[in-house]
Amino acid sequence: MAIPGLKKPDHIGFTVPNLDEAITFFQELFEFELAYQFGPFASDDNWMTDHLNVNPRAEITKIAVMNAKGINLEIFEYADTVERNKTVPNNADIGGHHLAFYVEDMNAAVSYLREQGIQVLGEPTTMTEGPTGGESWVYFMAPWGMQLELVSYPNGKAYAYHSAVALFDPR
């Protein structure tokens, strides 16, 4: 049984070292829109631990919420008031993650990223077999080290011919 009243994803939340840099990055490269910002936020009791699973003395400097064309981004910046891990996890780490964005023209998108000085990891990979047959993808890095991905499958993915489950399709 699912969570009562469950609808659709609302947002993806993540922490960055510099909120202004992240906002500019997503505005300039993706044309995401900033809806609002607020903060700071801290607590003198255990609220931060009880509700956010962080050090009780942690302080959120600012939070920004952006419209990411189909889902919202909730981006946090924490102050250096307490010891915390400042190493960005990679995909093999527990808690590793990436955000993926659909593009219509992979080559044009990769060229654009490189022209902007964005580190692209290798060349796009095109899947020719298996459930992701028909998809091309490439990873790239945000200035603060977060892994991001571009995906494209203009003619769909092979899994759709064999699965009763339809995945969200941004095309």
Rank of each mutant, 00 (worst) to 15 (best):
G5A: 04
D20C: 12
V138F: 03
Y36L: 01
L113E: 05
P56A: 01
A2E: 14
P9I: 00
H97R: 14
T81K: 13
E33A: 13
E149T: 02
D10Y: 04
V138Q: 03
L148F: 11
L6R: 03
L113V: 03
F140D: 09
D44V: 02
T87A: 11
P40V: 04
E21A: 09
W137M: 12
A42H: 09
A2F: 04
I94A: 13
T49I: 00
M1Y: 01
G5C: 02
N85Y: 01
I118Y: 03
F26R: 02
T125W: 08
D93T: 08
N18A: 06
A108P: 00
P40K: 05
A2T: 13
N46P: 00
E33F: 05
N72W: 09
L29P: 10
P56D: 05
A64E: 06
P4H: 10
A58N: 06
A164W: 00
E149N: 05
H97Q: 14
N46V: 06
V65I: 13
T81E: 12
T132A: 11
M48F: 07
F38V: 00
Y159V: 13
M48L: 11
S43D: 12
I23P: 02
S163W: 02
L6P: 01
N72M: 05
T132E: 10
T61D: 14
T125P: 03
D50P: 00
R114Q: 15
L34D: 00
P131W: 04
E115F: 06
V88A: 07
I94W: 12
